[in-house]
Nucleic acid binder design. Structure first.
Lengths: 339, 339
DNA sequence: TTGTAAGCGTTATCAA
DNA sequence: TTGATAACGCTTACAA
């Protein structure tokens, strides 16, 4: 049995032309019911398998979207990736994924490769290339939680998240508020968390500190840096005071939490801890973490609708419009580290 | 400026035929240095971008591999996925990823879709379809840590891992050994963990129990089920005895650990806990988890070499050979839950 | 070392 | 409602 059946084979088998076979798939309404059944039977008889590569070449629609992630170790990213991939059932797009391109050069190479496969759009979570460069490729691009000046984007309302976290610490009578962050540039959405922390602290005339840790080149390096900050600058540094620690991510907050527990044997009442993201692990720790949750299902849904719209517009020949920035509100989730 | 430059355009520009342009890319040795430079210049002048879709249609090589995962929440899977994607730099394959197809029907649909894109091979971690079905698609398939009777595979030596874990508990003078598992069929590699637990316990005439929890439909359901087992059947169930708990995964072990810590305020000396996988979180817990580590970098490397080989063989027209099963030894990592 | 021409498996245009 | 025929952009004999 021939293993690669084409429209021509079906045409020969049924006596139609291959044009009619193509129409059976793309414009079935223009074929008589009777002939439709004939073709349908032939398809089964010969065990036809569609060839999208040929289809793409002919009509230009790949149904591919490129996806570029910073990494997949971070549960926030792999959670987003999982949800994006799952939109296949609703949107039909397939995703070609690249991850971990921290060098501009290699990220450009990845994009060239994606372009060679005629992706219809690109979703970017990595921070490697400036949005101006991404915009220059001339395909629809949607950024998620990254610098987005020249491209459309979906991001959490980081500023509001920072207010929620800081206000909670303030209401819980913390005397010293610490914002524990990695270095963040002002054009990144996450900077809103710092900005609102500062604004809120100043508004209420609170005693606050910004402390920085380094991301390092691996999880372990980051963890070491955070432990170091906690042991050197937080523990025993504020005797008699209640300390509220707002961490830039759950990953960071969990390390802070564990470091404190290892020091005291438990989480003393004089410490409050809040994370950001609401990754699954924030629920798995010994003491469940209070966190500002990113609604990643909403983010993904908005991002997919947005990129679909951009792709449709491009197909319709519309000129690239002004970038659209969608903001998703965060959800403060109060658990045991602020109780 | 024309935005879609083809070989024909380069040919017109340089005065060569498009065949020569093609050769510039695929058989550069057959072109004079001088003409190579001419073509190279034209490519830049016209800003040529390659079109792999057309290339695929002409030569049949997509450089696509399909990847099917059970999910990406489990850090073991997302870790494997990350490492597989990163092999792009070494192997050049691009990956079209599907995830979370727990129904046979939808997994078949995913595979049909992958086939329509002319993937050259398939890597499967999901347990949804029996290997017989996967083998029937007639493309190279490599399974990772799943039932693999009719397809090639790479798996951890689960039996050895079970021996390592059980022996450690035995050496540490545990009086009662518990193997905490989810329901596992004998044809799945992970069954080896149970088998060796049983064999080792019987060999040393130890007091042992197998306890089952249910995976549920989400992380939370699984966690509830595990907590339930721990609270009802482990804590206070063996007074005066030292209890060794060998969990089927780190995810499970971490929940056990946290449940015990929440009960006692710490991890009492009469409990030893061992996990399996060595996911990053096993290092992040308050008390670091002893675990049987899967060498996922080795697994991925072996899997990629294996599937490349299968793809090459298929191209060379060789008949499908007997499935090849590669076993990767685990690494016992002793940390604080057995100290 | 280069060119001609046929082909890969679809879709799109026009005509009937 | 159907069919010829020409794309789509590249590769690959075969010929020169």
């Amino acid at each position: 049995m021939k293993n690669n059946i084409t429209f021509q084979d079906i045409a020969n088998y049924t006596g139609f032309s291959k044009t009619t076979i193509s129409r059976y798939f793309n414009h079935p309404e223009s074929i008589s019911k009777e002939n439709k059944e004939k073709i349908s039977a032939a398809l089964k008889d010969l065990n036809y398998k569609e060839n999208k590569v040929a289809k793409i070449l002919a009509n230009g629609e790949t149904e591919f979207i490129g996806l570029i992630l910073p990494d997949m170790y971070n549960a926030f990213y792999s959670g987003i990736a999982e949800k994006i991939i799952k939109t296949y059932d609703e949107f039909g797009y397939k995703f070609i994924i690249f991850s971990g391109s921290d060098k501009e050069e290699s990220e450009r190479k990845y994009i060239e490769e994606l372009l060679a496969y005629k992706i219809e759009g690109l979703i970017v979570l990595s921070h490697t290339l400036p949005s101006m460069d991404l915009a220059s490729y001339g395909i629809p691009v949607v950024a998620i939680e990254r610098e987005d000046r020249f491209i459309s984007s979906v991001s959490t309302d980081n500023y509001m998240g920072g207010i929620q976290a800081t206000s909670l610490l303030y209401k819980r009578d913390c005397n010293v508020l610490i914002n524990l962050i990695s270095q963040t540039k002002p054009d990144v959405p996450a900077y809103g968390r710092v900005q609102s922390f500062l604004d809120t602290c100043r508004e209420h005339m609170l005693d606050y500190r910004i402390m920085e840790f380094s991301l390092g080149r691996s999880y372990e390096e980051m963890a070491d840096s955070i432990r170091d900050v906690v042991n050197r600058s937080i523990i025993d540094a504020f005797p008699g005071k209640k300390v509220g620690i707002f961490c830039t991510s759950d990953a960071c907050a969990l390390i802070v939490l564990n470091t404190i527990i290892r020091h005291y044997g438990n989480l003393p009442e004089e410490y409050d801890i809040i994370g950001f993201d609401n990754i699954p692990a924030s629920l798995e720790s010994v003491i469940q973490l209070t966190t500002v949750g990113q609604q990643s299902d909403v983010i993904v849904s908005k991002a997919m609708h947005l990129i679909s719209k951009l792709i449709e517009k491009k197909k319709a020949g519309e000129n690239p419009v002004k970038p659209e920035h969608i903001i998703v509100p965060p959800k403060l989730i109060i658990r045991e580290t602020t109780t």
